[in-house]
Structures are given as structure tokens and as C-alpha cells.
Design a protein around this nucleic acid. Structure first.
Lengths: 329, 329
DNA sequence: ATGAAAGCGCTAACAA
DNA sequence: TTGTTAGCGCTTTCAT
């Protein structure tokens, strides 16, 4: 591999001049510029980006933390983010926490060791107190997930409202025994959804049984299990608020297998409006989250931060969500 | 940020000794080691990985090229890859070509500028001749996709056989007018699938009409379009080999909407065995590709290469595929 | 067992 | 407009 010095020698100029050509500096004579370019081609010269990084103290790399990329919501989000990153000459490192606190901290350490310029948190496993310190090392922003204590830019939806309108829709359709599902952690997002759910119930004066809360539910297979558990229940709910299209799809599919009528015997409310919502039978009535916009806006906020625009302290972007009717309710 | 020099001063030793402690060298007195550790903690010292990279001439980063991450086949593949990469202290940079030749070359340039230690090609847009030169800069391997001219390690399936058994299954079920879909490019994988498809047809003495080839088809929405076109046809096929579960799901969903009976009026053969295959109605009969294994094996081959094990010239891993019956045929 | 010094490849003051 | 020089932070000979 040839270096900037080889090019300088061959072109008969100094390293500085070569560097200037490389960085499109003004004040380089055209003839020297040509000489340098010729030398570069001759030597098949390519700048070593690691050396550039060391010198410039920047990596042109940002990390996005998600639970797992095979969740369609996140893969779509990452698709959008990566496209914008690429357009801006940035690399995107995908970090899957796999719902694990330790893995999350290992990824955050990348920031300490100067391996990345910024972090987009699209999920959060640890308590914010564990994470807060990392904000000293590089810009960290929230995307979709959030925490009230965090003084960092956040791009998200009103999850309280999302859960509220979903639940209210079920209630307005006459369902009065509504179960709900959630994963394992209780993040800002999950907490707000719970609040929205209960608020709709309270408003309508409907009861809620703890028996109707399913936890640790996030995959299609979990949805199948939930349906099987529901139909075995003594006091059986007639609707379920899933908080996830994957879970909802599992419920619907299993219902088809076991000949449980959707929505007559059980109404199913999804969340996300993933592609699958339009492919199951019946189609999934769900809360549409504008995942493209969330991903796009988040990456833009991050890029602004990297360019010194925008402030690191609180700055909230709230995106709209809405209900999509398809037939499962 | 404190550097190795700060630590050395505070501990009263040389930079060299600190570096030795950092790298678990033998021949460091226990008491000095303790001194160094204490100084590190006191200063909240973290090594700067860019400096390490420059010195060691390695990045601990590998890139994976895919069309787009939101294709469930690839998101699952990347999930597996990233987990193994993380376990081995490697970062995974996701590179979406978006089916674009230029973007693919931009990503391959990462290798030239020493930004990554290796490339996993899970798709290929350019002709291999365009790509071959890059093998001089870093290890490049094929995963799933492949090209006969490439002398690089390849982890893949027998796509000829996959297409053959899928098509033969349709024929054995009595379907005799079989359409097929493909995307836009004609890679090694796609070419082999075509050969397998035609081989089964020839063997059975079945005719094929060019009218029954749909190209530029890769998304759910494309599948919907294909179904609409098929039912308008004069000489209408009674089965379709899609080459993609997403396309197949689109066909099935649109058939449901338009009240076309699957498989009676149209049999649908998928490819991949994505999650969605078990969620549509009827379930998708499809060719199972062991995506977990492909991803896992590819990353292992790459890691071996990085460790100097394994040879860069031809080395083929062929993984098994099989048909899964579900009801769409 | 430890340290001095060279240098990985590049950029940016500063000087000329 | 160009070049000299001093590092960015780390690892690794080579001495001792």
C-alpha cells in the first residue's frame, strides 16, 4: 500500500500539498494538483481512513441499538437510517441487544473507546441511570423508545395516545373484557402504553383482571401461546390489545388453526402496522407507527448534532400515529 | 480524555509498561501492574481504539452487503451474523445496495480505504469482473449469492436443486401451466434457479410460455400485481413459482381479496420459508432455506480468514434445503 | 522486567 | 501558494 508520502515524492511536492488536494483545499496550483492526481493514479493510492480518523478525532460511524434486527419494525427503521447515513458518508453499525442489559452496556462502551461518533437508542434495557454517564462521551439520542429523566434529543410517538385510541376503539366496538400483552421490560414507552390502556378502561368504567395481562410476549410464537391460554380461561376476555403486530399475527394465525373466530370470539388489536398486518386473514386492525419518519428524523437529528447544529439537551420531536382498520376488531 | 501517557505518569512507569498491562503481556511485575490499574481507574482511562487500529493495521469491523435489510430473509441472516460478530469482538456494518450497482461499488471502496477487515457479499449487483479486483485489499466471501468465476470462499445452497424440487412438486401435483417470477438481475443464484425450473419442465415434457415470466418482481406489492395480471390472461397459468415468500404472500393475499381460490385456481410455490409463510392463509408451501446456518457459517468462515486460518481461494460450503408443505399447492 | 524511541498515515498550525 | 514540523494515541523493536 502506498502512502501520502509516496505520492508526495512521486509528484515532487510535499505531503501537505497532497493532503490539500485530498481535502479539496483552496490555494493549490492547478499544475501541482494535476501532478498529484497523476501520482495517485499511478500508485493506486487510497487514503487510509484510520489515520484520518486518528488525526481528525472522528469516525464517521454511528451505532444504532435495537433489540433484534429481525423484528420487522426495526429492520424497516434501520433500512431508512442506513440509507440516509450512506448519503451522508456515514457508516451504520447495527447493535442488537437481544433484550440483554449486559450486551447493551458493551455496545455503549464503543462510545467510550472512540469507535463511534454517536448512538441512536431505539431500545433501552438498562435503567437510564446506568446509561446517563455515556452522554459525556458522544451524542446519544432516543428514537422511538424514551425516558423522562433523559436530557437528550428524542424522536418518538405519543405512546399513551396510541394505546388509548386502540383501547378506546375496542371499547367503542362493544368489547368489555380486554386482555393485554407486553414484553419483559418496563421502559418509558411501555409504561406510557399501559397508562393509555388503563385510562381508556377507567374512562369507560370497565374492570381489568390481572389474569388478563400477558408478559414476556414479543414473538409470533408467543402470540400463538397467548391464544391457547386465552381459550382455556375460565373468565375469558373477548378482546386483546397486543402492543405488537407480530404477537397479534401469531394470535390470529393460531386462531385460524384452532377455529376460533376473529373478531367475533376474540378481537385483536395490533401495534406498528407492519407489512404483515395486511397479509394475515382477517387483516389486522392496528395502530400505525410512521416508522419511516421516525428513522429518517432520528438520523437527521443525529447528523445535525454531529455537525454542531442542534442542542444536546432536551429537544423533542413527536410524530403522529393513527389507527388502521382492517378486520380483526 | 486521558491517554496512555497520563496513566504512565500517574503510575510512575513508562508508556510501554502501561501498554503491556493493556495487552496482558507477560513480564510485568505484579506491583507495577496494580499501580497501572489504579491509575487507569483514577483517570477513567479508556484506550483509543482508532490509535490501536492505526498501529495494528486492523479495524475489527466487517461489512455485509445485502439488497435491503427490511427483506426478512436478510434481516434474519444479519441477526445471526451480528450475534456471532459481537461474540468475537467484531463490529458489523450493514451495507444496503438497494439493488444499485453504484452503491455496491461505494461500499466495496470501504475495503480499499482500510475501513473494514473483510466483506461478506450476500448479494451481487455488478458483474464479478467489476468486483474481482477488490479481493486484493481484504478477504471477500460469498454468502447465499455466488458466481462461478469467483475464487473466493462461498457458503450457499444448491439453488438449481431448490428450484427443481419446487417445480417438480408442482408438476407431481398435476399443475401443467407454471408461471415464474424473478427480480431484475441475473446472478449465479438466479441463473441456477432458472435452470432448475426449466429442467423440471423439460423432464416432464411441459411447455413454457415466455408470457408466464414475470420480471422485476421482489416485493409483496409486486406479488399483488402479478396475481392481478395472471387473472387477466388469455392463456392463464394454474401455478406460479415465485422464488420469494414475500412475492408469494402478496399473491395469496391479493387472491383472498379478489376471491381467487388458492390452490385450486392457482397454486403458489414460495421460496425461503420466511416467518410469513406460516402466517398467511392458506399457509405457503415453500422451499426452506436454512438462513440461520448460512449466516452462522459465513461469519465463521470470515472469522477464520481473519485469523489466518482457511484459504482465500475456492472453498465451498453447500447447505441443505428442503420443501415445506403448507397448503398453497 | 522495564524504558526510550521510532513510527503507523495523516492533518493543521505556522512560517515563508 | 507551498513546505516544515509537530503531533493524534498507541504498540513494538531494541537496548539495558
Amino acid at each position: 500500500m502506498s502512502t501520502i508520502e509516496d505520492v508526495a515524492k512521486l509528484a515532487g511536492v510535499s505531503k501537505t500539498t497532497v493532503s490539500r488536494v485530498l481535502n479539496n483545499h483552496p490555494y493549490v496550483a492547478e499544475n501541482k494538483k494535476a501532478l498529484v492526481h497523476k501520482a495517485m493514479e499511478e500508485l493506486l493510492y487510497v487514503p487510509n481512513s484510520t489515520a484520518q480518523r486518528l488525526r481528525k478525532q472522528t469516525t464517521q460511524t454511528i451505532a444504532v441499538l435495537i433489540p433484534r434486527i429481525s423484528n420487522p419494525f426495526f429492520s424497516k427503521m434501520v433500512e431508512v437510517m442506513e440509507n440516509i447515513a450512506a448519503d451522508n458518508g456515514l457508516q451504520l453499525v447495527v447493535c442488537q441487544t437481544m433484550y440483554d442489559k449486559k450486551r447493551e452496556l458493551v455496545y455503549l462502551d464503543l462510545v467510550k473507546t472512540k469507535q463511534i461518533d454517536g448512538v441512536i437508542l431505539a431500545s433501552l434495557e438498562n435503567d437510564w441511570n446506568e446509561v446517563n454517564d455515556y452522554t459525556n462521551f458522544a451524542p446519544i439520542i432516543f428514537c422511538n423508545e424514551y425516558d423522562d429523566r433523559a436530557q437528550v434529543p428524542t424522536v418518538r410517538l405519543n405512546q399513551f395516545e396510541g394505546a388509548y385510541i386502540g383501547t378506546k376503539y375496542l371499547i367503542d366496538k362493544g368489547y368489555n373484557k380486554i386482555a393485554k400483552c407486553r414484553g419483559n421490560n418496563l421502559s418509558g414507552l411501555v409504561t406510557d402504553r399501559q397508562r393509555g390502556f388503563y385510562h381508556a378502561l377507567d374512562e369507560a368504567g370497565l374492570p381489568f383482571s390481572e389474569e388478563w395481562t400477558f408478559t414476556g410476549v414479543s414473538l409470533v410464537e408467543d402470540g400463538r401461546r397467548v391464544l391457547r391460554e386465552i381459550i382455556e380461561m375460565e373468565n375469558r376476555p373477548n378482546a386483546v390489545f397486543t402492543g405488537s403486530d407480530e404477537v397479534a399475527a401469531g394470535i390470529i394465525s393460531e386462531a385460524g388453526r384452532l377455529d376460533v373466530k376473529i373478531p367475533d370470539e376474540l378481537a385483536v388489536m395490533g401495534f406498528d402496522d407492519q407489512q404483515i398486518a395486511g397479509l394475515v386473514t382477517p387483516g389486522l386492525t392496528t395502530i400505525h407507527q410512521p416508522v419511516d419518519q421516525i428513522g429518517k428524523r432520528s438520523m437527521e437529528v443525529m447528523i445535525d448534532l454531529l455537525h454542531g447544529k442542534g442542542r444536546m439537551d432536551e429537544q423533542l420531536t413527536l410524530l403522529p400515529l393513527h389507527l388502521v382498520e382492517r378486520g380483526s376488531v
